[in-house]
């Protein structure tokens, strides 16, 4: 340990500024995750790690289990659909924000953020009240109006889970989109209109491609949240409903099969990373594609 070392330390140069956060994450995130994932490769009986307990059994068993793939597909399609729904709802809202005056902007921002101030569980219970059986808000209204005779089954369906997730995660899509759209260079659109393009084609050929960084950020965050959420599927999907995240919860907390649960958690997290990477790469590709289009 030389003088130069202490100089760098004192001046906060090199990697030192990252050390506190790294130490924190190492103790409270990386280490526990490592321990958890290692359970996926270990035989455990009655809470005791067995000697010479290393095994690939849980990995091979899980991957060859049809039920696993079925559950994975459910997670994937629920996550993807609610992410796309979020995007389709958020983009027009963020665009409206960017085109509005100060008051309207404030209103949109407050309405967007305020759901974050209540817990996701409370909001999910609110959906129970709205979607619930005969006495749920929607069904009872429709029956009162005489539009239907018997209540729709809305709760305990994929539909309920997707709606719930979309609502809970909407702010995370709106905020990055607002950031890029509000900061965009308006002269780009003026230039497009000035060259005779219509408003619609200006929107799709100029505004949307230039907001790509915000789109990628929003899709990434919301997909990661939706794909791994287990509270909403449990509450709005009902007893028989299951996703990968729900399975992890059940294996570890209910069935107490830690090894199986750890393996599922590892696969959930790993696949989530892969999908996020794919969104990022696809985003880059879309930019490149729109760029190369007429080069021919």
């Amino acid at each position: 340990m030389t003088e130069a070392f202490w100089t760098r330390f004192r001046d906060g140069r090199g990697v030192w500024p990252a050390v506190p956060a790294f130490v924190f994450l190492a103790i409270f995130f990386i280490a526990p995750m490592g321990v958890l994932f290692s359970f996926g490769f270990t035989e455990i009986e009655r809470g005791q790690v067995q000697e010479n307990g290393f095994t690939l059994r849980y990995l091979t068993d899980t991957l060859s289990d049809d039920l696993f793939w079925w559950v994975w597909w459910k997670s994937f399609y629920i996550g993807t659909l609610s992410t796309l729904l979020c995007f389709l709802l958020a983009y027009p809202l963020a665009y409206l924000y960017s085109e509005s005056g100060r008051r309207m902007r404030l209103l949109i921002l407050v309405l967007t953020i305020s759901p974050l101030l209540t817990s996701a569980i409370v909001r999910t219970y609110a959906w129970l009240v709205i979607l619930g059986g005969r006495r749920g808000v929607i069904n009872s209204t429709l029956i009162e109006l005489g539009l239907i005779e018997r209540p729709f089954r809305m709760l305990n369906t994929d539909f309920a889970v997707i709606i719930g997730m979309t609502q809970v995660h909407l702010p995370f899509m709106v905020l990055p989109l607002i950031t890029v759209l509000a900061a965009r260079d308006r002269n780009m659109e003026a230039a497009s209109l000035g060259m005779g393009a219509s408003r619609l084609s200006t929107f799709f050929r100029i505004v949307v491609p230039l907001s790509m960084p915000g789109i990628v950020a929003g899709l990434t965050i919301v997909f990661a949240l939706s794909y791994t959420n287990f509270i909403i599927p449990q509450l709005l999907g009902g007893g028989g409903f299951t996703t990968l995240a729900v399975q992890v919860y059940e294996q570890i907390v209910v069935i107490l099969d830690w090894s199986k649960g750890a393996m599922l958690a590892l696969l959930l997290l790993g696949s989530c990373f892969v999908f996020i990477l794919m969104i990022g790469l696809a985003g880059n590709r879309v930019m490149r594609w729109s760029v190369k289009e007429t080069v021919e």
């Binding site: 260079d185 780009m188 230039a191 230039l210 790509m212 729109s290 760029v291 080069v295």
Partner: peptide
């Protein structure tokens, strides 16, 4: 200038 950054000169 307001050139479109996501398009080549040609585009």
């Amino acid at each position: 200038y307001a050139l479109f950054p996501h398009m080549s000169v040609e585009e």
